[in-house]
Nucleic acid binder design. Structure first.
Length: 509
RNA sequence: GGCCCCGUCGUCUAGCCAGGUCUAGGACAUCAGGUUUUCAUCCUGGUAACACGGGUUCAAAUCCCGUCGGGGUCACCA
């Protein structure tokens, strides 16, 4: 099979692979304490590809930096992937033939390759003290030179090096970048060429003998049989160093595709958790957007199916995803679009499925306590039904329904205004309260009665509705008025109407 | 600063490889109108973009060059 870039889909250009080997892709996050949206999208695209190609989706923890590696951080990633519905075929939790799946446990695997690299001279020892490296950098910055190691230790002879090591010096080991250039045929960006003169002799092995990221990935990707690497564009410059290592070891280089970065809302650099809460997946999990909507939205950042189709099921996304249609330019997050899509998905759900999701949020927020009485269950069901079409995310229910659970509703300014708008409002509220039967009639009957009530008083329905809504909910927006009334029940309606009457009659502050 | 990547409505994008069918399509947002007791939903309609300059060509959003702008990366981090 021929090697070619698959930047464009043309039907007959079917191949994004260059071998007949089964596709093996990986998601290799670093447990930093949160799952970045960009990482989530990377995981998603890899998962799409694996599922579509009948390949394997491997999860690997890049936790060689022990300081940041905590169990909580790992759990955040596992839970994030679960929420997204991305099940790894192999990983720390599920194991597999190519384990272990955490770099911190793979040191023995690295040792052999490191020894081979040292023996072949691809790695050379660097005895430069950190202070020298630091001052070198400072000088280069000041003189506007490229910030690169000056390769001083390449001049140290093997014999010298051996004796210095014997004398107790502990060198770091650098990659001896060969002459020439490297051409990357990127799956999303096409051919990219970099001259080796522009590549630094980076440190690959620490003084303590452990490999640096750029070495560990190469060894892992090779030993795990990874065929395709889809990752963020921030790895593009690393890629050339990695390819050099692959070639030095005589290993087959996987196919690479570098995804465009997700930028801050103002287009200012990549999203960082410090500056943007929406950088972390937990942000979306907490509000609880519809997960299927979320992956739909995420898939649309940097990828598209055609010029029209946006709403797609998971199965459709798997079927339609193609690396060739991944964009090259960075994208900003459009959270409002997520809200729109999620609201769409939720509206299409049967109420019976919305109810438990919504219920769970009310419990979690402490608005209702488990176990719920039959009356409370009925009330929650009524709230869910009433707010269903307004939800952009399941967690929205909490703010939407606070007015129900408060002893008396908090009055919004506009609601208070509606209450005081007419001098006759206080009397109207009291009079209507007096007409209320317990239990309250069905909404249609209540409305009919209310309209008659208005006609009898010679007022328009609108004059009635706004103050009543204010008294009942303290808000100006919400479900149909009589639904609100029934959620509260006759007794609480009366209480609120009377209090509303008092507020309406009180002097403006 | 070196190297690398990118540049279509406010935002996400289709179109670019194989130049004409593009008076540039869709979605979100926004504006106006309709439905509605509010909000939401739903329906209708509108505003809004090929970064700039050259070149190639009968013809350029599409190809080439340059400029400008944005981003990434340059740790004994990942």
């Amino acid at each position: 099979m021929q090697i070619r870039s698959a930047r464009f889909d043309s039907g007959w250009r079917l191949s994004e692979t260059h071998t007949m080997k089964p596709v093996r892709v990986r998601f290799a996050p670093s447990p930093t304490g949160y799952l970045h949206v960009g990482g989530a999208r990377t995981a998603l695209f890899n998962w799409f590809y694996a599922r579509q190609q009948g390949g394997s989706f491997v999860l690997r923890m890049e936790d060689t930096d022990a300081a940041r590696n905590t169990d909580a951080a790992r759990q955040t990633i596992f839970e994030g992937l679960r929420w997204l519905g991305l099940d790894p075929d192999e990983g720390p939790e599920q194991g597999g033939l190519f384990g272990p799946y955490s770099q911190s446990e793979r040191q023995p695997i690295y040792a052999a390759t490191i020894a081979e690299l040292k023996a072949s001279g691809v790695l050379y020892p660097c005895f430069c003290p950190r202070e020298r490296l630091a001052s070198l950098r400072t000088t280069q910055e000041a003189t506007r030179q490229p910030f690169r190691y000056d390769r001083a230790c390449r001049a140290v002879s093997a014999a010298d090096a051996a004796s210095r090591i014997a004398a107790g010096e502990v060198p770091a080991w650098r990659l001896r970048v060969p002459e020439g250039k490297t051409v990357l045929d990127d799956l999303v960006r096409g051919e990219i060429t970099v001259e080796h003169a522009d590549i630094e002799d980076i440190i690959l092995v620490r003084g303590d003998g452990t490999p640096i990221y750029n070495l560990a990935v190469v060894i892992d990707d090779h030993s795990m049989g990874i065929t395709h690497v889809l990752r963020g564009e921030d790895h593009l410059t690393n890629c050339f160093k990695q390819i050099i290592i692959f070639k030095a070891m005589g290993w087959e280089v996987p196919r690479y595709g570098h995804l465009p970065l997700i930028l801050g809302p103002a287009g200012e650099g990549k999203l960082s958790k410090r500056k943007h809460p929406e950088a972390a997946l937990e942000h979306y999990q907490a509000r609880d957007y519809h997960p299927e909507a979320f992956i739909n939205w995420l898939a649309l950042i940097g990828w598209s199916f055609d010029d029209k189709t946006e709403l797609m099921t998971r199965a459709e996304l798997v079927e339609r995803f193609s690396i060739g249609r991944i964009n090259k330019s960075g994208a900003r997050l459009n959270i409002e679009k997520l809200a729109s899509i999620s609201g769409d998905y939720i509206r299409r759900m049967p109420l019976a499925e919305v109810l438990p999701r919504v219920r769970q949020h009310l419990v979690k927020a402490g608005l209702v306590a488990e176990p719920l009485s039959a009356a409370a269950e009925a009330q929650v069901a009524a709230i869910a039904a009433a707010e269903h079409e307004r939800l952009k995310a399941f967690g929205d229910i909490v703010e939407f329904s606070r007015w129900v659970f408060a002893a008396q509703p908090t009055m919004e300014e506009k609601a208070l205004k509606n209450l005081k708008k007419d001098a006759a409002n206080a009397a109207m509220l009291r009079d209507w309260a007096a007409t209320l039967a317990d239990p309250l009639p069905l909404t249609a009957d209540m409305e009919a009665a209310a309209r008659e009530f208005c006609t009898a008083r010679g007022i328009g329905f609108g004059v009635f509705v706004h103050p009543v809504r204010a008294a009942l909910t303290g808000r100006t927006a919400g479900p149909p008025l009589f639904d609100c009334a029934r959620i509260l029940g006759a007794v609480r309606c009366r209480e609120r109407l009377l209090r509303g009457a008092d507020l309406a009659a009180s002097e403006p502050a």
